[in-house]
């Protein structure tokens, strides 16, 4: 008897707080669903957004691979639009990216400089000899100094640098042919103007 009586005695307006948990659960459900949909549509929750966009590239001076040109210096990169690709012969995802880099190099649109990250020089050279060499200059970064300066988490990562030496774009993970066509190439054309 009391349940019924109480509900009759308490006006409906005063019972709205009992709906709060339901509202909260629905709101949470909405947030979770949004996130799941984002991930489904290709958002990678593990990617840390870079804080280096639109900042000058860090200064570095990296030794070349033996017998392969001169060192890779940050100062030398000023004056032209270029890509800096952080890679390693141990890196599986770099294998996926490699044909795209070769295509970009062949197109002559932009020089690609390589940072051979945490690698043995011999292995880097053997890897390039076997698969082709898309790089203009390559600098070695055995102790991650440059990689950390670039905020690199995992190879491959690629930075697009403008004529003033400002970082304009960062690609985390392999560049696909679509990324090149739709994002990077248009940006380069814009930066070259």
């Amino acid at each position: 008897m009391s349940g019924q009586d109480a509900s009759q005695a308490t006006p409906l307006v005063r019972r709205w707080p009992y709906l709060l948990p339901l509202v909260l659960i629905l709101a949470l459900g909405g947030v979770f669903t949004k996130r799941l949909v984002d991930v489904e549509q290709g958002l990678n929750p593990n990617v840390i957004p870079t804080v280096l966009l639109d900042t000058p590239l860090p200064s570095f001076d990296l030794a070349p691979l033996p017998g392969r040109g001169t060192s890779l210096k940050s100062d030398d990169l000023k004056g032209e639009v270029s890509l800096i690709n952080v890679w390693g012969s141990w890196c599986i995802a770099c294998l996926v990216e490699h044909p795209v880099l070769l295509d970009i190099a062949a197109s002559g649109e932009v020089p690609i400089h390589g940072i051979a990250w945490r690698d043995e020089p011999d292995r880097s050279l053997a890897w390039l000899a076997e698969r082709g060499d898309p790089y203009a200059k390559i600098g070695q970064d055995p102790r991650s100094k440059a990689a950390i300066a670039f905020g690199v988490v995992a190879a491959p990562e690629t930075f697009l640098v403008d004529k003033q030496g400002i970082i304009r774009y960062k690609q985390t993970g392999p560049i696909t042919a679509e990324d090149w066509r739709n994002k990077i190439k248009p940006l380069i054309e814009q930066l070259k103007k």
């Binding site: 945490r118 102790r143 991650s144 100094k145 990689a147 950390i148 690199v152 988490v153 995992a154």
Partner: peptide, 10 residues
């Protein structure tokens, strides 16, 4: 992780 090791060294 390697990167953590290199960060420690830095």
């Amino acid at each position: 992780a390697q990167i953590a090791r290199d960060m420690r060294i830095l």
